[in-house]
Amino acid sequence: MANKITHLIKLSVGSESFDSLAAWQKQKRAQTDDGLPRHVTRMWPRRETEVLDGGSIYWVIKGAVQCRQRILRLDEVTGQDGIRRCAIVLDPELVRVAPALKRPFQGWRYLDPADAPPDLAQGRASDDDLPPDLSAKLAEIGVL
């Protein structure tokens, strides 16, 4: 029986926009030794097999899901405090998705593929970013 794919959803704390998340991930301190972007978290996904079977992490920026990245692997890392953590290693390609409002939450959550916002069409993906407040308002009324 094939595994059911599941995604993760996470607030991109400190990101002001899609572009600021992309810029952060290009910094050496946000990358693995092989140059891939990563996000280090305290908790290891219990549904690891489902996440690694084609799952993505969906990034919430300024109150709206704005993009996703395919999850490539999970690496164990140990912090300076000696505590084991999980590095979620990501595909460098950020894929814009249809904005969807999301209330703040802590950590990451599982996201069922049926509840994930769809990718934007190729032509829309290169559109200029709307200001985050405007994007959130349009998503709120169902325009985006």
Rank of each mutant, 00 (worst) to 15 (best):
G82H: 07
K10S: 08
R103Y: 04
D129S: 12
S126A: 15
G82D: 10
G107K: 07
D53K: 07
V51T: 04
R85Q: 11
D34F: 07
P117W: 00
P37R: 01
E76V: 08
G82C: 08
K137T: 14
D133F: 09
Y110A: 02
G79D: 15
R85F: 04
A64K: 04
Q122Y: 07
K137W: 12
L8K: 08
C86E: 02
A23F: 06
T78E: 15
G107L: 10
R124N: 13
E48S: 13
D91A: 04
P45Q: 01
S15A: 15
D129Q: 14
R68L: 04
P45F: 07
E48Y: 03
V51R: 02
L111G: 02
P104F: 13
Q106E: 03
L130Y: 11
C67W: 00
L111I: 03
W59I: 01
Q122M: 10
S20Q: 09
R124K: 14
G14Y: 04
R96T: 03
A121L: 14
L21E: 00
D112T: 00
Q31K: 10
G123H: 11
P118Q: 00
A87D: 11
D128T: 15
I88D: 02
D19V: 13
R84I: 13
S135H: 06
S17A: 08
D33A: 15
Y58E: 06
R103P: 05
Q25W: 15
P104S: 12
V13W: 07
L138I: 14
Q31I: 04
P37A: 08
L134K: 15
R29S: 08
P132L: 06
D53G: 09
S15K: 06
A23C: 13
V51Q: 01
D119F: 01
Q27H: 10
E93H: 13
D127H: 06
T78C: 07
L101T: 09
H39P: 03
H39I: 14
Q106F: 09
I57M: 05
A22E: 10
L11G: 00
K10L: 11
Q122K: 11
V60T: 07
L8T: 06
Q122A: 14
E48L: 13
S56D: 07
D91P: 03
H39C: 08
I9S: 00
I88S: 02
L36S: 08
A64Y: 02
P113A: 10
V65P: 00
L74V: 10
V13H: 08
I88Q: 01
D127F: 06
Q66N: 14
R124H: 14
V51E: 02
K28E: 15
D19K: 15
T49Q: 11
Q25G: 12
W59L: 00
V97C: 04
M43L: 08
M43F: 09
A121N: 07
S126L: 15
P117M: 01
L130C: 11
L130D: 12
F105P: 05
R73C: 10
K10F: 09
M43N: 08
